[in-house]
Design a protein around this nucleic acid. Sequence first.
DNA 1: ACCTGAACACCGTTCAAGT
DNA 2: ACCTGAACACCGTTCAAGT
Lengths: 220, 220
Amino acid sequence: MTTTTRTTGLRPEDIVEVAHRLISEHGLAEFSMRKLAAELDVNPMTIYLRFDNKEALLDAVARHGLARVRLPPLPVGAPWPDRAVALCEALRRHLVADRNLLPLYASDGRMSNAVVQSVEQGLALMEEIGYRGDGAVLAFRSIFWHTVGFALVDQSVERFPANGPGGLGDLVEIDESTHPNFHRHLSSFTTVDGDHLFSHTTRLLVAGLYGDAARSMEPT
Amino acid sequence: MTTTTRTTGLRPEDIVEVAHRLISEHGLAEFSMRKLAAELDVNPMTIYLRFDNKEALLDAVARHGLARVRLPPLPVGAPWPDRAVALCEALRRHLVADRNLLPLYASDGRMSNAVVQSVEQGLALMEEIGYRGDGAVLAFRSIFWHTVGFALVDQSVERFPANGPGGLGDLVEIDESTHPNFHRHLSSFTTVDGDHLFSHTTRLLVAGLYGDAARSMEPT
DNA sequence: ACCTGAACACCGTTCAAGT
DNA sequence: ACCTGAACACCGTTCAAGT
C-alpha cells in the first residue's frame, strides 16, 4: 500500500488553473510563485518540479486561457462589412473579457492560439470579396492585428485624460496661438469610450478593405 | 562658504536622464531603483528625497521622453491620403524608435504628451476633408489610437510564429478537414513585417476615413 | 525517487540614527 | 536640514539535506 502525499497529487493542470484564477483576480503584477504555492498549500519549490521557471508556468497559463476562446458564429445573410466587423468585435470581446489576463496574453508573443480560432472565418471572409493567396492573409492580418492593437491600447485609453479639471489642459499647454485646432476642439476631447472608438475605427478599416477589394477587381 | 556634497548637486533632471538611459539600454524589466542609485554613485535612499516612489520617477521619465517627440512637417501638396498616412508613420517612428521605452510610455496612461504633437496636424487634416467638431476628434482619435495600438502590437508581431519548422504548424493542429482555409493558406503565413503591415493597414483605414467623409458630404 | 528548508542574490521602501 | 545605514517584507531560484 502506497501513501500519497499532498503534493504527489498536484497535477500541472491544477497549478495552471489556480495561477490563472490568481492572475484574473489580482492581476499579473501581484502574482508570484510564493503566493501561488501558498494558495495551493504547498512548498514553493514543489512548483519547480513541474515547471522550469515562472516564465514557463506563465506560458502554460496563457495557452490554457487562449485555448478557451471560442468565437460565436457570424451573422449569416448580413452584408459583408457587418460580418467582418462582427468577427473583429467577437475577437475583441474575448481579449478584453478579463482585463487582468490580457497583459499575460500580449507579452512575449503568446497570442498564437487566439489566431487559430479567427483565421478560418477571417480567410473565408477575405476570399468572399476576391482576396487570394498572400493577399487574403495580408487582409486578414490587417484586421486581426488591428483588433489586438486596440485591445492593448484599451488600458491606456481608459486612463486617457479628457478635457476638464485635472485633464488635458493641465497636462499640456494648449495655447490658442500655438495650437489653434486643438484649442478650438478642446470641448470635444471627452473621455474616450474604448468600445465605441474600436467599433467606429473597425468599420472604417473594413470599409477600406472592401473598397480596396472592389477596386482591384476592376478591369485595368 | 558652503560645501556641496555630491548628492546635493544631484538634480531631479539628472536622475531622470540616467534612468531614461538605463531603461533604453537594458529594458524596463531590468531597471531598479538600486541599480539607478549605483549608476548615479549615490545612496539608493537619496532618490526618494526627489521622487515619492518608483512609479513617480517612471512617470517623470516617460514625460521626459515623450516631450522630445517632434513630428516632421507633412509633405505639402501631396494627396490627402498620403499626408494622413505620413502623419501616422511619423508618429509610429517615434513610438517604435526605442523598443525599450515603449513599454514605459504605454503603461498607466502615459501617452498624453505624444498626442499633443500630432493633434494639431491631425485635426487640420480631418477638417480639410469636411470633418467638424466631435466628428473631427473622433476621426483623429481613430488614426491616433490605431497607430499606438500597432506600435504596442509590434513586439508580439515580431515573435509571431510563421509557417515552417517550429512555427505555426507545431503550435496548433491545422487539419485540412477542420481548418481548410488555414491549411490552404499555410504557405502565405510568413514572418510578419511590422512596418509593412502597419503601412498597409493604415492606408486602408485612411481610405475608409476618406470615403466616409466624402459620403457624409453628399446631399441626402 | 521525491520533496523541502535554508540560503542566495536580488527587490521597493521605511525610519531611526547620524552629521 | 539633509542624508544614510540598517532593517523589513517581499521576490525568483538553487541546492544540499532529508525521508
